[in-house]
Each structure stands twice: as C-alpha cells, then as structure tokens.
Design a protein around this nucleic acid. Structure first.
Lengths: 148, 148
DNA sequence: ATAGTTGCAAAAGTTTTGCATTGTA
DNA sequence: TACAATGCAAAACTTTTGCAACTAT
C-alpha cells in the first residue's frame, strides 16, 4: 500500500523528494525513506509550524508508514541540523518551524495557532549583558494575542 | 505533625500568613490552609520562579501536607487572579513567576534556570498590528543563553 | 559488511480529572 | 448548612527510550 502510493505520485512530488534528498545529504543526514517523506511535507510550503502529532497524522494520511517515535526523532534531528527551529509557547506541546531565519511569532493560545512575524519588522533593544559565563544564544519574542 | 510545625513557627512566618491571607481575600480566593501556605512560600521573597513539582517539594519539606494536584490547581488559580505569571520556555515543564510586572527573562536551558530581566531595560519595537480580530495580550521575550 | 535508522511497545514525566471528604463562611 | 476546596489515585497526554529488525552506503 505504501508502495502503491509511492508509484502513483506525480512528478512534482518526485522533484520534491529529490530536493529533500539533497537537502538531507547536505545536512549530513542519510536520506532514508521516512526522512525524505517528512522533509518533503515540511519543506513543500514555506513557513510551516507543525507538532509531532500533527506531522505524524499528515504523513500517515498521505499513505506513508512512519512511527510517531521516528517523527519525534526526525524533528529533533532536523532541528539540530538547522533545518527546523523549535518554538515552545504551549505547556502541552512543542512546535517546529520550517522558517529558521530571523523572525518571531504571534501566538493565539485558544487555537494553538502560531503566526510568523518577519524578522525585519521587529526589534529588541536593551538586552542586558547575560550573567558572567553565559552568552546569548538566541532571542525569542512571542506576542500572545487574543480574540478582540 | 503539620500542626506541630505550625505551632513552632516564628512571628515572621505568622505575619507572612496574615499578609498572604489578605492578599488572597483581595484576589477573591478563600484563604484556605493550603493556599495560605503556598502563598507564604511564594511571596516571602521577591521574583521567584517555581515549577509545580518544585513548589510541592518545598511545601512538603516545610512539613505541610498538600497534594501535587492542589499545587497545580493553586498555581493556576493564582495565575488567573494575577498573582503569578506563567512562563513557558521548556517543553517539559511550566514555570510560574511571582513577579507579574513588566519584565522579561534569560533562560539557561541546560539547568532549567530562569533569570529576570527588568522591564525598563528591554524594549521591543516594531511589533506589527496583529491579524484582524486579534489584540495583543502580552509580549514575552526569552533570551536563551548558553555557557560561554 | 557495517554503521546508522526505524518500529514497536513500554517507560517516563508532567498535567488533568473525578469523586468522596473536608473545611470555610 | 451550603458550597467551595482538597486529596487521592487514576487517566490523559506528550515525549523519550531500549532493543531487535532493517537499510543505506
């Protein structure tokens, strides 16, 4: 069944798979079937925000068999490789953002919705020097919004 | 045993209990034994960052019997009442900050350590208008730091 | 061939829930 | 006396882990 689904995919999907493969190799990750499929879904569109559960449902719905544990592994591997950025705004789950560039987020708590804010528009000034022995790794800004 | 511990507390602790009681009443919360104890621990010092597990261990160590579920309930009730601010920076657990004023945080991930940044020192500029129908609730800035 | 990956199921950890009991007003 | 709050244990979740089976190079 997974095989049949693979054969019936159109050319665009195959191109995406090729792109994904290259991207994975470049990141030092073996282009396994699961990783290629996940990367294909993640990087097909720009600026996606997914949770593990979320992505697992999507890949499963696409007829591909991948375990949830592997989705978790893969998301973390992609994050370590700089392909994803992990955003923690909800106590219940982690989000992974395909946009690794300089930008921030709106977060609509009631719906678990994350919306990008371009990096150029926002600016954080006056961050004090971190305590001795520590260096700034990155600055996260979350603008929590509510229905008006 | 809880009773004995109560009797042997010094005056300062009793004053704190009185303060906590007033604070709770003011917030519309019944000053129950558990809430008074937790409030006493939370607001004795300024700018504390606790987790539920954390606070439960502390209150237990102080000889007071409070269930973990009640600690969770209480932290959320205090947060709703504006006595605490919930800070979510770690996928694994929530922090509750006794400082509800305008300020932000350094976060040292490797140690789960949260450090206040005074509100006056930091400034966020250029936040775009939120999407239609949404209003800004609050802006959280987390400066993630690493050992240098 | 071999080293890296995956799947599965179970473990671990945090947070929530249901309901009988207790305590506050 | 009412009604809110608590305790307990179990449930619900998300995330991690261990190990045998598999697969890319």
């Amino acid at each position: 069944m997974g095989k049949a689904a693979g054969e019936t995919r159109d050319l665009a999907a195959r191109d995406l798979a090729l792109l994904a493969t290259g991207r994975l190799r470049h990141a030092g990750l073996r282009p396994t079937r699961q990783r290629v499929e996940l990367a294909g879904l993640l990087f097909r569109d720009m600026d996606r925000h997914v949770t593990a559960e979320n992505l697992h449902a999507e890949v499963t719905a696409a007829g591909v068999k991948v375990s949830l544990a592997t989705v978790y592994n893969t998301l973390h591997q992609f994050t370590e490789a700089g392909l994803l950025r992990q955003v923690i705004v909800d106590a219940a789950r982690s989000y992974f953002d395909t946009n690794t560039g300089d930008h921030q987020h709106f977060f609509l708590e009631t719906e678990g919705l994350l919306i990008d804010i371009p990096g150029e528009s926002i600016e954080v000034a006056g961050v004090p020097a971190p305590p001795a022995g520590l260096a700034v790794d990155r600055v996260d800004v979350v603008v929590r919004v509510k229905r008006a």
